Amino acid sequence: MAYSSDIEAIDALSESYKRIRQEIGQVIVGQDDVVKSVLISIFSNGHCLLVGVPGLAKTLLVNTLAQVLDLSYNRVQFTPDLMPSDILGSEILGEDRTFKFLKGPVFSNIVLADEINRTPPKTQAALLEAMQEKIVTVGGNTYPLPRPFFVLATQNPIEQEGTYPLPEAQLDRFMFNVMLSYPSFEEELRVVKNTTINKSVSLQKILNAEQIQYFQSLIRNIPVTDHVLEYAVSLAVKTRPGTAMATEEVNKYLSWGAGPRASQYLVLGAKCHAAISGKYSPDIEDVRAIAEPILRHRIVRNYKAEAEGISTEQIIRKLF
């Protein structure tokens, strides 16, 4: 990709982002913050967890995204009887009496892990290892996953019977935890209008795998001033109860705080948020814009917070 400077490349990224939003808008009505978070995750080379009730177009969003970004896409419906080999693939004995590796659905650019909390920890761990290492090891052989590699997992917050909630250490692998809410009345009217007629939308391909990888490395090259870096790190450090920088609310309402990965993602996310907004370096506003979905699943409230009805979001906003 031939750009004369990083500034020109950031302008190209900002322009591509607007075009991607426009294309997705033909299919997905509303959900602006969700689309933004998912795209920031992709350009920051992170993974995303979507939490919302059924029927809020989570699967449709991922499918649309894969088409617009010209990426391969697989959807895995997580069930209690799903085995690690159903995701990663397995070795089979071929006709020539040698073992051949049959690749599983994880070998694609975008993997939608639908209802990840419905499957046992062993299978969850297999996917989470692939997310972290970007490789799969089966039968002593290592297979690299295609790049870019992005996991979008969904969780249904209502039915908790027969589910296996993701442990905090594994939730930490996700860059964002995005909450989906119901559409507004006007948005739902548009959804029903568009989906109850014979209407087919042809989507344009805006970027490809090579361009996305280029932009992922561009994001890491964006300079950050010391005061923004310090602000991002202090935001994560303040969430740790019993430490020198912890606030009064944190000590009172949290039993666990965010780890160093939160600081890394706050800086990366702020860089990406600045770039798609057409800025060449992030400021404190960019850190605040992405702080909630990054910190939400990394801090654990205690019984006092739950008893008093203090939400995780309220605690995070107080830290600003």
Rank of each mutant, 00 (worst) to 15 (best):
S4P: 02
D11C: 03
D11W: 05
S14C: 06
R21M: 14
Q22W: 08
I28W: 07
D32Y: 06
D33L: 12
V34H: 09
V34R: 08
K36M: 11
K36W: 09
S44D: 03
N45K: 15
K58S: 05
K58L: 06
T59V: 04
T64V: 05
Q67S: 14
D70Y: 13
Y73C: 11
R75A: 01
V76R: 08
Q77P: 07
L82F: 09
L93A: 11
G94W: 12
R97H: 12
F99H: 10
K100W: 12
K103S: 14
K103D: 02
I110P: 08
F149K: 14
F149P: 10
F150W: 14
V151H: 09
L152A: 13
E161S: 09
Y164W: 10
E168H: 02
E168Q: 08
R173L: 00
N177T: 00
V178D: 00
M179P: 00
Y182N: 12
F185N: 12
F185V: 15
E187D: 11
E187Y: 02
E187R: 06
I197A: 09
E210T: 14
Q216M: 05
I219W: 07
R220W: 00
N221E: 15
H227G: 00
V233C: 04
T243S: 14
M245E: 14
T247G: 05
E249Q: 13
S255H: 06
G259A: 08
L268R: 12
G269S: 14
A270E: 01
A275R: 04
G278Q: 02
S281M: 03
A289D: 11
I290W: 04
I290Q: 08
I294K: 03
L295C: 03
R301Y: 00
N302K: 05
L319M: 11
